[in-house]
Write a protein that binds this DNA or RNA. Structure first.
Ligand SMILES: [Mn+2]
Ligand SMILES: [Mn+2]
Ligand SMILES: [Mn+2]
Ligand SMILES: [Mn+2]
Lengths: 222, 222
DNA sequence: TAATAAAGTTAGATAAGCCTAACTTTAAAT
DNA sequence: ATTTAAAGTTAGGCTTATCTAACTTTATTA
């Protein structure tokens, strides 16, 4: 079953669709424009590719209709996501990369075609369940644990929570997280919130920090 | 200096040129046809690319003239070769691949762009000098130890030698080498040679084997 | 419901890599 | 020194992935 040869671009479309449907709870379809934004291309470009992906039976799609993954498409997309997250874990665990440096390289490595390579890598890393950003890693069967996670801005004043993952994977954001001394597992308490400009005052390790709503929306906590 | 962005294809051209010039002792230039054969494309295709590579100052080339690498081209090509051989070493050393399985995957991995990645990989592997096929690995400065090596068919009857590298990297050939119980470092004695069909009779570990001239030409010995 | 806005599609271009077929230049043989 | 063969080049096409500009369909909102 796993011998359909997909181009880098096709794989990126499928991975995007995984993010926009499977991983975005309670939404199994997306539109052309949303996919275009996610892939950083123009809607006209997406439209061309939709025809090709439908032809290859990777997506369900009708003219002017919504887009969803077929089972084949879902498996192929999940494999790309699995590779991405395993490579990120490898870079951090084995090559001492920091978590803000791995995403760009993993964007390249996720397209290496070799089932054996990825399964051996999984084994070398001891079958990790989460990547360096706290995101779950799909297993070899394409199964993933989808957790309902709150973002920091949804937490009430006075409540304590623990950082389990980050939404934004850009190095700009992650370096900002580093600057606050935050890592996956950090305890965070909401000291107070500003109504006017929506700033949050946090207590981390007995120190006080002020962050924006935008920042807080990119932190997943429990 | 290392911020010229090269495509996979351009990198493959430079790597080919490294093989055909730098690594092929006493020949610093090649022609369009020879390069085309090496890259498995048509001469017309090569011709188009030559114009582009010259434009980017990666090769020296004039219409109807021979092709050679510039210093920039040599360094870029050497880096691709370095990556190829380091990844092959990684696959064998860290992921338990056998030497006949690594070449195809390394053909993909050699195009991952990240200086940090490759230098960390080098360090993880303890700065190996040779890849699994006995080929020297260029260092981070693009320097490589070029050794003058004899092939098995050049050895005289009665002489003993040691396998140091293989010329052919195809899995078909390497599996054949495996079948004879040969590995890098194996002692080989030439028992005799047939004049008529150029077969060689070898003694390896007190056992006798018969191989063709074609086979013997692909084994480097000292 | 009719007007307007948003979403989606099509047509026509472009650039990278590749091809075949025909042509030109250089090298090798007679 | 011609002739022929080999090597190299050009012209014109194809495919993939992208774009812009114009158009059509669906959704929203007055
Ligand atoms: Mn990532
Ligand atoms: Mn990608
Ligand atoms: Mn190889
Ligand atoms: Mn290659």
């Amino acid at each position: 079953m796993e011998d359909l040869h997909l181009s880098f671009t096709e794989e990126n479309y499928l991975k995007s669709l995984i993010h926009l449907t499977v991983l975005s709870l309670a939404k199994i379809e997306v539109g052309t424009n949303e996919l275009a934004v996610n892939l950083n291309v123009k809607p006209a470009t997406v439209n061309d590719m939709l025809k090709k992906l439908k032809e290859k039976k990777l997506i369900n799609y009708e003219r002017y209709g919504k887009i969803s993954l077929t089972e084949i498409g879902r498996l192929a997309g999940m494999e790309v996501l699995r590779k991405h997250r395993l490579w990120e874990t490898f870079l951090v665990e084995k090559l001492d990369f920091s978590w803000d440096e791995v995403h760009e390289v993993a964007e390249q490595l996720e397209h290496i075609h070799s089932r054996k390579l990825i399964d051996r890598l999984d084994s070398l890393l001891d079958f990790p369940k989460f990547d360096p950003h706290g995101d779950p890693i799909p297993n070899a069967k394409g199964e993933i644990e989808i957790l309902t996670r709150k973002t920091l801005n949804e937490i009430e004043i006075g409540e304590k929570c623990r950082l389990v993952a980050v939404k934004d994977n850009s190095s700009a954001f992650l370096q900002y997280v580093n600057k606050l001394g935050l890592t996956i597992g950090s305890e965070i308490e909401i000291a107070s919130k500003e109504i006017y400009d929506e700033l949050l005052h946090l207590i981390i390790d007995d120190q006080t920090f002020t962050v924006s709503k935008k920042f807080a929306e990119n932190l997943f906590v429990v």
